[in-house]
Design a protein around this nucleic acid. Structure first.
Lengths: 197, 197
DNA sequence: GCCGCTTGTGGCAGTGGCTGCCACAACAGG
DNA sequence: CCTGTTGTGGCAGCCACTGCCACAAGCGGC
């Protein structure tokens, strides 16, 4: 049967799968926060949620994946927001606006917990940073549209702008966690972006 | 015997050890470049240089470490350069100047090979990015000295500046490798820093 | 109701990175 | 020649992760 003619039931299945995934991820997050990421094995997580270790790796591509998640869905959202910005806007402003999507979604207890766990382990931080690489590639075409100047250096400048934006994002996240939400993520991100004008 | 009274011979030993380390790293780099990082096992590298796999991990803390190296030595050099910049210089200019140390050291065949291998594997890219985190912590005190404005946001802005500088560095490296050295790293880095003024 | 198909799951064995431990070899100083 | 220190190899074991296979669950057609 072809992809197009499949019954909508498959969406239900997908939804069920996503629900399980979320639940496993949340249990994992709690365990990692409580006992440490390295000290908690995949077997521990699997046992806690009542699935086999083998099945854990059917839901997540890696142990880290249960915390940092797939970069693509958010990447698409933010890229769409970026594409929807006015064509004559300064790229730096477009980037700030587009990242608001991530800010809105992270500014809650779950986001705080996730960031705290991410920052607690080098391998998680590394995966987190890798997400920026994936997003950066998705953003590039949109940012290039808004960049003028010498053609020979456009790609370089787009790259620098994009990853500087991520640097601001991480600085804001870091401060947000360190201050324990004394200020809003949105404000902190504004400050960080402002510092690089 | 106490640390202080040890004979200088130990430096010789350290030097010998460093020499072996370099040689193993170079062989590893060649193998990784030729057959791929993931497809090359530590056993392969060990066999190629005539040491046991167990000994490989006495020279390097991880397989990736043979490529990306210890962040501390370079971190110290650059931090020292940063500290030596004039106190009234703009932090962005100080950072650009301090990174020249890395540029000078990378701008050769070995550096090109290393960057190519690093960019070829996600796990290597991740470790490479982790190095920035370590360096960032070392730079922070020096950058803070050069940052004014509201005290409440100084750390945030310092963090954003520092990691934006690394974003520029990586953008320059990426372009340098992509262009196959058609332009110098130093020029590319200038362009990237310029794009963020 | 039965059958057959697809899809999700568990178990098992195996690979590869990495570590602790122990025995042994190399080499220095006495 | 002996002795303490240091580097090395081998072995066993942990853990993340994968391929394979057998099996169970749900769904469609009949």
């Amino acid at each position: 049967m072809s992809e197009a003619t499949r019954s909508p039931r498959l969406d239900l299945r997908g939804a069920a799968r996503d629900a399980v995934r979320d639940q496993v991820a949340e249990s994992a997050l709690r365990l990692f926060d409580e006992h440490g990421f390295d000290a908690t094995t995949v077997d521990d997580v699997a046992r806690a949620v009542g699935i086999s270790p083998r099945s854990f790796f059917r839901y997540f591509t890696s142990k880290e994946d249960a915390v940092v998640g797939d970069p693509m869905p958010y990447g698409r959202l933010v890229t769409d927001d970026l594409a929807a910005r006015p064509a004559d806007e300064q790229p730096w402003d477009s980037l700030r606006a587009a990242l608001q999507r991530l800010v809105d979604d992270a500014e809650n207890d779950r986001g705080m917990l996730t960031m705290r766990v991410v920052m607690s382990s080098p391998s998680l931080r590394a995966r987190h940073l890798e997400k920026h690489l994936a997003w950066g590639q998705m953003f590039e075409p949109e940012v290039l549209k808004r960049i003028g100047g010498l053609a020979a250096t456009r790609r370089l400048r787009a790259h620098a702008l994009i990853h500087a934006a991520f640097a601001c994002l991480d600085a804001a996240f870091g401060e947000w966690v360190a201050l324990e939400r004394a200020r809003t993520l949105s404000e902190l991100l504004d400050d960080a972006f402002q510092a690089l004008r």
